[in-house]
Design a protein around this nucleic acid. Structure first.
Length: 452
RNA sequence: GGCGCCGUGGCGGAGUGGCUACGCAGCGGCCUGCAAAGCCGUUUACACCGGUUCGACUCCGGUCGGCGCCUCCA
């Protein structure tokens, strides 16, 4: 088990992962608000943290991965009301949650260990909110409950902001009921047109945006758990507020390391539903396949912003092919011991802030060395590396096996070649091509490789 | 404006105070009947200006440029 260091947004430094009880690692990765189908940008944290969990498990840690679904939110009310015909917001949330599960299933990374819903955590939310009021960190006004940011000396610590330095939109209506412009809602009183609400000591209503994560994370992972993650656009206010809520209610921090992935960009801008420049995940998977999409994601460090375009995906597809082609030359069993250095360097790179791009470099060094050695190299190292990236199936034998007719064509072609009748040989190769096979002549005879 | 991140070869993308990243594409070579795959070699790398240092792409300062965030309600 090698030491793992991860970038912590709060300190801006790489910090060593220190699992509770030696090996228990809790990861909470913020999932989507379900008011529509998710896009590839939403898939980045899903992939990043699923792969991180895989890596840590293979290193011997007992990982619990939690990815929440926020299913109570203003945007959901809006979307449900605008649907044609308008529908109950709970129905839309349920529908979109199912779509989210189906879409992310397409990534072939399994499910997180827990996928809590805000709507099923109301009791914990109410309890947490009550605790904050009791401790003087929150106050109720006409059915709303606001968090008192001034009461938290560390507020701004995660996102490196000073309360007084922030641009505060003054003169807005709601602001007048708040003690401080940055105070945010823990609970929102029920309003006309909202079709979901729960009872609470300070009035009927529903949770604000941030409190559900504090409640769900604590419930499933406890306090001071190891890793809290999500997109970098969540640092402020979402994670800052989550951290403040738990700190003030419990007197302890919610999480130890705060990890944030960079944004996917689509033509200069961040991919976002609010901008409208989105590529839905299900469409991307349909067009490119999950192997290529995973290869695309691991090709860059998780913290870097990445441009999402055809060229990048085409290149990822080419990398996938290179690995597949190499895999066809390998044999079952152990890899040469003197090639283990590349495999170890691959894992070391992942242990240093989960640098999948650097790790991939080592993987390709291993591939080149294997290619150089030719036939008979055992595949175990490559299988181990690909397994961490959830790409182990690139080594699977072709899904399609050549049939007797294909074999017959190959034999006829070999005979033609033996007779130096190359026109006939090429015609047979073309015929195999139309049957979906690319012929590669090698020392051991011809090999059939499936073509798309 | 504030905070944070970043600016690497045709493209993508790691990394380091002095030593080959890696991948994609191109070109040349080897192999091959041809092709594919593969191997070898190769093309103006480190935004700009100062500074520190024996030595900086790699540290410090500045400039220019890019990106993210800067609550809720409405």
């Amino acid at each position: 088990m090698r030491p793992v260091r991860l970038h912590d947004t709060a300190t801006g430094a790489l910090r060593e992962l220190r699992p509770r009880d030696g090996r228990r690692v809790g990861i909470y990765a913020c999932g989507p608000t379900v008011y529509g189908r998710i896009h590839v940008g939403n898939a980045r944290p899903f992939v990043t943290f699923a792969l991180l969990a895989r890596f840590l498990r293979r290193e011997g840690h007992e990982v619990t991965l939690v990815a929440n679904v926020t299913d109570v939110n203003d945007k959901i009310y809006d979307a449900a009301a605008r649907a044609d015909p308008p529908m109950p917001s709970a129905d839309l949330a349920r529908e979109m949650t199912a779509a989210y599960v189906a879409d992310t299933d397409g990534l072939g990374l399994g499910r997180p260990d827990h996928e809590p819903l805000a709507s099923e955590t109301i009791e914990r939310i109410v309890e947490l909110t009550g605790e904050l009021i009791e401790r003087g960190h929150a106050y109720a006004v006409q059915g709303d409950v606001f968090f008192r940011v001034r009461s938290d000396a560390r507020y701004g610590w995660l996102s490196h902001r000073e309360l007084d330095a922030m641009d505060q939109g003054e003169g807005l209506e709601g602001t007048q009921r708040k003690e401080h412009p940055l105070d945010f809602a823990l609970w929102k009183a029920h309003k006309e047109g909202e079709d979901t609400a729960w009872d609470a000591p300070w009035g009927r209503g529903r949770p604000g945006w941030h409190i559900e994560c504090s409640a769900m994370a604590e419930e499933l992972l406890g306090l001071e758990f190891e890793i809290h993650g999500g997109g970098s656009d969540l640092v402020f206010p979402h994670h800052e507020n989550e951290a403040a809520q738990t700190r003030c209610a419990r007197g302890r921090e919610l999480a130890d390391i705060w990890m944030h992935n960079g944004m996917l960009q689509l033509g200069r801008d961040k991919m976002a539903k609010s901008i409208g420049n989105v590529a839905p995940l299900h469409g991307v998977l349909e067009r490119w396949g999950r192997d290529t999409l995973i290869m695309f994601f691991v090709g860059a460090h998780y913290r870097q912003p990445v441009e999402f375009d055809d060229r990048a995906l085409e290149e990822a597809a080419a990398r996938v092919e290179r690995v597949r082609d190499a895999g066809r030359r390998l044999v079952d069993g152990d890899s040469p011991a003197d090639m283990a250095g590349h495999r170890d360097a691959f894992l070391d790179a992942l242990a240093e802030d989960f640098n999948t791009a650097a790790a991939l470099g080592h993987l390709f060094e291993w591939v080149r060395e294997a290619n150089r050695r030719g036939e008979g190299v055992g595949r175990s190292h490559l299988a181990q590396m690909l397994d961490v990236l959830a790409l182990e199936r690139l080594l699977d034998a072709a899904v399609r096996e050549p049939g007797p007719e294909d074999h017959a064509l190959v034999e006829r072609r070999q005979a033609a070649r033996g007779a130096r009748d190359f026109a006939a040989a090429d015609a047979l190769r073309d015929e195999l091509r139309t049957r979906g096979w690319e012929v590669r002549d090698g020392a051991q005879g011809a090999m059939l490789v499936p073509v798309e």
